[in-house]
Design a protein around this nucleic acid. Structure first.
Ligand SMILES: [Mn+2]
Ligand SMILES: [Mn+2]
Ligand SMILES: [Mn+2]
Ligand SMILES: [Mn+2]
Lengths: 220, 220
DNA sequence: ACGTAATTTTAGACTTATCTAAAAATAATT
DNA sequence: AATTATTTTTAGATAAGTCTAAAATTACGT
C-alpha cells in the first residue's frame, strides 16, 4: 500500500507545521499550507489516521505517528538532495529549484536517493542551508542565529535562509548574496530596527527587520 | 490544462504501438500494453480525442495527432535522458533503470530536461542504444541490422537491444555483453537458426534465434 | 455563564480513472 | 448468407481527492 503523492504532501505539511512547537496541528493551518479547504483536510486526516500515519481526535488537531515522521523525514531528504543536484550539477539558481524538487521528492526508491547522495558527495545542507537528514533520518543542526541579533561591527557568514520564496531569493541574488557571503553590521537603526550592512567587504545595503530576521548566520 | 501522468502514458503507448506500421492502433493492443481493460482504454481515448491529442472513430482504432506525437516524443526524450543519467552518473545497471525513468519522464520542465541534456554531454543514444530525440523532436536513426542477419566470420558491434526486459538485459550482463561489445559469428546452425558467437574475441556462447533477433549491431 | 465568533466536521456533489458485465459492431467460418 | 467468434463500446459501480454549504463543536468577550 504505497502512499499517493497527495497523502505524502499532507504528511510533509503536518511535519513542517509541528516542527517548532511539537503541538497538535490545526485543520485550518494545514488547509492554508497546502492551499486547500478545511473540509478536504478533515477527509484526508481521517484516512491518514486509519492508515496509522497520524494520531487524530476530532476538533483536537492532529499529530504525526512515528511512521508518519519517518515518511516526512524521507521526503525532506529526497527534496533537499534533489535541490542540491539541480543547483550544483544543473546550474539552476537557488530561487528556481523548489517546485521541481516538490515533484522529484515523490519518486520512491531509497536506492536512487542513496546513489544520488553518494554522487553529490553526501552533502549535509541544501542550497538554502537547510540540513539534509541522513539515511537514518537524523538531521544535522544548523545555526539558528539571525542577522537581526548581531551587534554593530560584528560579521556574520550566511548559512541559511528562513524564507524560501522566489521573490526573497531573487532579491538576495540581486545583491550578490549567497550562502557563505559575509555580512558586516555597520549601523543599527533603533527606530525601525533596520540595519546597514556591508556585503563581502564591498557594497553597502539597508535591510529591513523582515529581511534580517530571515537570514541565518554564524559569527565570523 | 496540463496532462495527467495517466494521459501521458496512454499517449506514449499509442506512439510506440504505431511506430512500425503507422496504422491506427487497436483498443485491445493499448489495453495489453499498459495492463488495463479495453473499457478503460475506450474511455481514455474519448477524452484524448476531445482534447485533440488523437484522431478517433469508434470501432476503427486511434491515431496520434501532431500534438499527440509531440507529447510522445517529448516523453521519450525525457525517459531516455533520465536513463542515461541513472546509468552514467549514478552507476545503475541498464537492467535497473526503466521503471525509475517511467516516473521521472513525467516531470514537466523543458528547462530541466535541456539542462540535463547539457550536463550529460548531449548523448544521442540511451543505455539500451535507443535514439534520444533532440529539442525539436528529431530522432537520430539507429542501425536496424540484427545479429541474426550476419554471415559466418562477420563481426558486429552491439549498438542496441530490441527487448528491454530485465531478464533479457540481466542475461546479457551475465555474458559481459554491453553496448560496444564485439560479437563474431563463428557458426550458424541451420536447423534452429541458432548461432555460435565469440564475445569480445574471448568467450564463446550459443544464442538462440530469439536472442540474436533482439541484438542490433553495426558491422565492424 | 451566555451569546457570539471562529474553527472544525459532516453532507452531498463533482471529477478522474478504474473495473465488471452486458450490448453492439465488426470479422471470420462454414 | 447465416452463424459464430472476436473486438469494441456502453452501462453502471467503485475509489481517491476535491469542493461548497450547512451543522456541530469549541473558544472568546463581556
Ligand atoms: Mn511534493
Ligand atoms: Mn531547500
Ligand atoms: Mn510513465
Ligand atoms: Mn531505454
Amino acid at each position: 500500500m504505497p502512499l499517493s503523492y497527495t497523502e505524502e504532501n499532507y504528511i510533509k505539511a503536518i511535519f513542517k507545521l509541528s516542527e517548532k512547537d511539537d503541538q497538535p496541528v490545526n485543520t485550518n493551518a494545514i488547509a492554508k499550507s497546502i492551499a486547500t479547504t478545511a473540509a478536504s483536510v478533515t477527509d484526508m486526516i481521517k484516512k491518514l489516521s486509519e492508515k496509522g500515519f497520524v494520531y487524530y481526535e476530532r476538533y483536537k488537531g492532529v499529530t504525526l505517528s512515528p511512521e508518519g515522521k519517518s515518511v516526512a523525514t524521507q521526503l525532506i531528504r529526497n527534496h533537499r538532495l534533489w535541490e542540491v543536484f539541480l543547483v550544483n550539477k544543473l546550474q539552476f539558481g537557488w530561487d528556481q529549484v523548489h517546485d521541481l524538487a516538490e515533484e522529484l521528492e515523490h519518486i520512491k526508491s531509497t536506492d536512487l536517493i542513496n546513489r544520488l547522495d553518494t554522487f553529490l558527495g553526501n552533502p549535509k545542507f541544501d542550497p538554502h542551508g537547510d540540513p539534509i537528514p541522513n539515511r537514518e533520518g537524523k538531521f544535522t543542526l544548523r545555526n539558528q542565529t539571525t542577522l537581526g541579533t548581531l551587534l554593530t561591527d560584528q560579521t556574520g557568514i550566511l548559512v541559511g535562509v528562513r524564507e524560501h520564496t522566489t521573490p526573497f531569493l531573487a532579491y538576495l541574488n540581486g545583491l550578490n548574496i549567497n550562502l557563505g557571503t559575509e555580512l558586516k553590521i555597520i549601523e543599527r537603526i533603533q527606530f525601525d530596527r533596520s540595519v546597514k550592512v556591508q556585503i563581502n567587504g564591498k557594497e553597502m545595503s539597508m535591510f529591513t527587520e523582515q529581511v534580517s530576521q530571515n537570514l541565518f548566520v554564524k559569527l565570523k
